[in-house]
Design a protein around this nucleic acid. Structure first.
Lengths: 112, 112
DNA sequence: CACCGATATGTTATGATAAGCATATTGAAT
DNA sequence: ATTCAATATGCTTATCATAACATATCGGTG
């Protein structure tokens, strides 16, 4: 057993565009928005405030210069939020990249 | 060309031990200590204060419970700092893992 | 038209991390 | 002894991201 047996490799990936990043935080937030149909629902699931979730999304949209969500204000259920096609595509790309990277880093480390 | 042409994948890896991490920051700091033979020299190269560099190293040694450097106080050149065997081994492991991961993530993304 | 639940924002703590400042110590060389 | 360059630490102060608080608005429904 090597002196490194206690160490484990960690890995993080993101998608980058002119300095702006799409990473795990936005991923899990958007994923839940897609599932629950609202920012409030997603935020609640993640134990964060609506204010924080909303702020993250707006900042990301501004920095990435991409529309991530489409919202409806008022009405039946008070309103709601859905994902844009671009957001959905980003989710898929990010998830694939992340999962594959995790896998590879783990295997890489074992064969180091 | 897809709507993702503007995106590039980013990747970060680290070695982890009971919550404590060894990542790019310690890597480049230790690398320079090894080259320059002093914490002061390494810090200067990186544009950080000696105080900051010294603090990082001590904190890491404490958290990781590993001796990373051996120092000499006073004397000819005022003193100096060298890397321990464990530190050198960590450097090698980290660098290999990081470079391979970067490579793989890049290729992975292209074939996504 | 009052109510409810969700969106929409400005403003204000706050807490953690980093930067900066100051000072003491060490030991070879001159 | 004095000097010099580097180690060794204690404090204080920015900084900065996040949390928390406070309102306003919208628009179906009962």
């Amino acid at each position: 057993m090597s002196a490194f047996s206690a160490f484990r490799p960690g890995c993080k990936v993101w998608l980058e565009k002119e300095g702006a990043v799409f990473g795990e935080g936005l991923y899990s937030l958007l994923l839940r928005i897609g599932r629950t149909g609202s920012i409030a629902g997603a935020a609640s699931e993640m134990g964060m405030s609506y204010r924080a979730a909303w702020g993250k999304i707006r900042l990301a949209e501004k920095r990435l210069n991409i529309k991530l969500v489409s919202t409806r204000v008022g009405g039946d259920a008070g309103g709601g939020t859905g994902l844009t096609g671009e957001a959905r595509a980003l989710l898929v790309k990010y998830q694939k990249l992340r999962d594959a990277a995790r896998d590879m880093v783990l295997h890489l480390y074992e064969n180091l």
